[in-house]
């Protein structure tokens, strides 16, 4: 059972994630994305940081999410600037909406991904579908 008061709740920021050339190169290679050394991160790379924030949400016992019932319903990114090697990024997730459709909980989240100075780099919006009991 998902807490009804989950909407509007903001969770603590994730631990800083050090963006390195190696991590960017591995992500680019895995997705077949062309990228020069020192160049910007692939567009969807911030999911790595946002995913940590989503995992923390789903693992929080006070929220009541059962991980095996969760499906990633939608994802969006709004980039303020490209991610580059040397960035230290944290994600802070806010549950912006919670509704029920056909017994499933539709959880809309927005994670603000900021650099070491606190400047916004990317906003990652994820919709998580928490399916009803079988």
């Amino acid at each position: 059972m998902i807490l009804a008061d989950l909407a509007g709740r903001t969770f603590p920021p994730t631990a800083p994630y050090a963006v390195t050339e190696e991590r960017l190169a591995a992500f680019a290679a895995a997705t077949g994305t062309s990228r020069a050394v020192g160049g910007p991160a692939p567009t969807t790379f911030p999911i790595v940081v946002a995913f940590e924030a989503m995992t923390a949400l789903m693992a929080d016992p006070s929220v009541g999410i059962e991980l095996h019932r969760v499906v990633h319903g939608a994802q969006g990114f709004v980039h303020t600037r490209p991610v580059v090697a040397g960035d230290r990024l944290t994600a802070q997730l806010t549950v912006v909406g919670l509704r029920q459709i056909g017994g499933a909980d539709i959880i809309t989240t927005s994670s603000a991904i900021v650099d070491a100075t606190g400047a916004l780099v990317c906003t990652a919006e994820a919709t998580l579908v928490h399916k009803a009991d079988d």
Binding site: G39, T43, G76, V78, H79
Partner: peptide, 19 residues
């Protein structure tokens, strides 16, 4: 995103992406 990068001829040009 890769498809859009390939159209543009360079990475890093997408400011918003959603699906």
């Amino acid at each position: 995103a890769r498809y859009v990068d390939e159209y543009r001829g360079e990475p890093g040009g997408i400011v918003e992406l959603s699906a």
